[in-house]
Design a binder for these strands. Structure first.
Lengths: 246, 246
DNA sequence: CAGTGGTCTAGACCACTGC
DNA sequence: CAGTGGTCTAGACCACTGG
């Protein structure tokens, strides 16, 4: 017997949708951590007093968003940026050769500053709230490829220091996840073509004025909560930003 | 009674997958045309001798690829670029204001030429095969925004002429669909940042050397058959290429 | 082998559309 | 109202994993 076929909210909300929300809440609460296995479909069906099929549909939805990962014969797992296939989940820049891009991090600085208007709006915090501003360069085969500025709300990343970033081996999102328990599930990007300014040109070892791909990104964790603002300036000489439209 | 739970192919193929293939074949054969309603789930279930649930799963897959569109209470329809929501399905460039982009076409030329190596590889045809090369500019509020070169296999677009393009009102994909029965379902894009050459600069009314977003696209019809190669050079001053990562 | 996810069925009922 | 897609169930069986 299902708990309730209808919710109190104005418009109709199917059961599997309610289950999806409950599962998400458990994820937010940390009941199951990234990489861990969640209970089997039959267990969850029993817990929520619904049929296996309904649980399946809820899990299907979360799996299609890459929040959960199903593995036949093993179980269903919380997706993690530490899993090999998810290491560079959001990195769309790739060599035109088809080679795999495993860039190297070179951190330039970490400053604690006050959020400007754009950062504040993106991160849904008040302007002048303290934020960390990180600058780094991504190297590919020892050649500088991308210059990033990354802005994070200081309140969400207490005790963040340059050495901590530098000693960590792996992507930023792996870092957020393992050190701060923040798993990024989604991002929005806006791309523009810009001319390199002097400072960026120096970092990327190109002439000032060279055309660069400017990628503005906002990354979100569970519940569409924005966590990271990022501006990447990227060389596209032998590299390109790949996208599938469907 | 299902026709067969296993296919003859080496590895296991579920029934709903076989149904999905049959539906796709009917679409390719033109049994149901863009915009038309396909038979109801129960009819299809009877036709293929499977349960409604199995048909549902096949349709779900096609709907998630935007090949079919479900409308509760009405039926399931073949997606069409002529439907308002699908007009500019693959246009990711948008004003930073959030305004909707309804660009205007200005055709510059149509030439019949031989396919070069890149076009041939992209369209999976032999080099030197005849192709149409179309050049146009997209205007937004009378301001030139994008310069496109579009390459199509001549064999697939017989009798294509500039006047035909010019008299047609709507997007290119609407044109392919309504005039040649070719519905594009998917595209791959590669983005780069480039400096405007003299000719492009003139068309877009900017200084030579200005940074432009170069968008190379291959668009596919049913069965991943490539139909269109396109190179767009786009101003990103007040506009940007929007993308969601998940 | 037991346990997991994956498929498929048959049937009941709900929500939405348009006549 | 009939007809469509959408939800939910209960149960059978298949495919895959690992001990």
């Amino acid at each position: 017997m299902p708990a309730a076929k209808h919710s109190a909210t104005p418009s109709y909300r199917p059961l599997y949708e309610q289950i999806r929300i409950l599962l998400t809440q458990s994820l937010v609460a940390g009941e199951w951590k990234p990489g861990e296995m969640i209970p089997s479909e039959l267990e969850l069906a029993a817990r929520y007093r619904v049929s296996q099929g309904t649980v399946r549909k809820a899990i299907d939805a979360l799996a299609s968003e890459h929040i959960l990962v199903r593995r036949q014969g093993k179980g269903t797992f919380v997706a993690s940026h530490t899993q090999p296939a998810y290491q560079y989940r959001f990195l769309r820049v790739m060599p035109d050769t088809g080679e795999k891009l495993h860039p190297q991090n070179l951190f330039l600085e970490l400053k604690k500053v006050k959020a400007g208007a754009e950062h504040a709006a993106s991160l849904k915090i008040k302007a002048t709230t303290p934020v960390h501003s990180i600058k780094r360069v991504l190297l590919f085969h020892d050649r500088p490829l991308i210059h990033d500025e990354i802005v994070l709300a200081a309140a969400q990343f207490p005790g963040l220091t340059l050495p901590k970033l530098e000693e960590f081996k792996g992507s930023m999102y792996m870092f957020y996840e393992t050190v701060y328990g923040l798993r990024m599930i989604r991002a929005e990007e806006r791309l523009r073509s810009v001319a390199a300014d002097a400072a960026t040109a120096a970092h990327l070892n190109v002439a000032p004025g060279a055309p660069l791909l400017c990628v503005d990104r906002i990354a979100f964790t569970y519940g569409d909560k924005p966590v990271e603002w990022r501006r990447g300036l990227c060389l596209t000489d032998g590299f390109s930003y790949y996208n599938e439209l469907s």
